[in-house]
């Protein structure tokens, strides 16, 4: 069996939607707590299609996120690649966890993601000094059940034939 290649169009669409959600204007108070939509959606697809959605997809999507948010090029890209690597390693277990347990794993992955994205900011001299920097860890875990059920329905409707 060769490696399955190609990103199915519903997956590409959800990734684009996640990038859009990352820049949709929201009230200033809520801005630091915005969930990491792109990371959540990548985690789900990497778990569902580990042979298709992998590190390279995560890296490229991360570069796009960096460009969109005006951050150092590569900052989100490396962080996303690392957490997707972990998802690829644990995906058989992650799939059979109940949702609340998946939320725990997502929270840990998000904490790692935010930590990895923090380092370059610290090295280049301008780390965000506020505790709110870590808010997406919590909010991302809280919206995971929503993402999970939405994307699962999507996969069942259009992508059941894929592995």
């Amino acid at each position: 069996m060769t490696r399955a290649i190609g990103i199915p169009w519903p997956v590409a669409l959800t990734l684009l939607a996640a990038l859009a959600l990352a820049i949709v204007p929201i009230p200033d108070i809520l801005r630091p707590a915005r969930p990491e939509w792109l990371a959540l959606i990548l985690i789900y697809w990497a778990m569902a299609f580990p042979s298709r959605i992998g590190i390279l997809t995560a890296f490229v999507a991360g570069l796009l996120l960096d460009t969109l948010q005006g951050q150092l090029l590569g900052q989100n890209a490396i962080a996303l690649a690392v957490i997707i690597y972990i998802v690829l390693q644990i995906h058989p277990r992650l799939r059979v966890y109940p949702v609340w347990q998946q939320m725990m794993v997502v929270a840990i992955l998000m904490a790692l993601f935010k930590l990895l994205a923090l380092w370059p900011q610290g090295i280049t001299g301008f780390p965000p000094g506020s505790i709110w920097y870590w808010a997406p860890v919590l909010t991302s875990a809280l919206v995971w059940p929503l993402i999970f059920s939405l994307l699962r329905d999507m996969r069942r409707r259009w992508l059941l034939h894929l592995t």
């Binding site: 992998g54 890296f59 150092l72 590569g74 890209a77």
Partner: peptide, 21 residues
């Protein structure tokens, strides 16, 4: 698995990312 192993892929991508940064 055929192809490049995920670990190697990750390392390559991290190196590329660091260079970009």
């Amino acid at each position: 698995r055929l192809g490049v192993s995920p670990t190697l892929r990750l390392l390559a991508v991290i190196l590329l990312g660091l260079a970009l940064m």
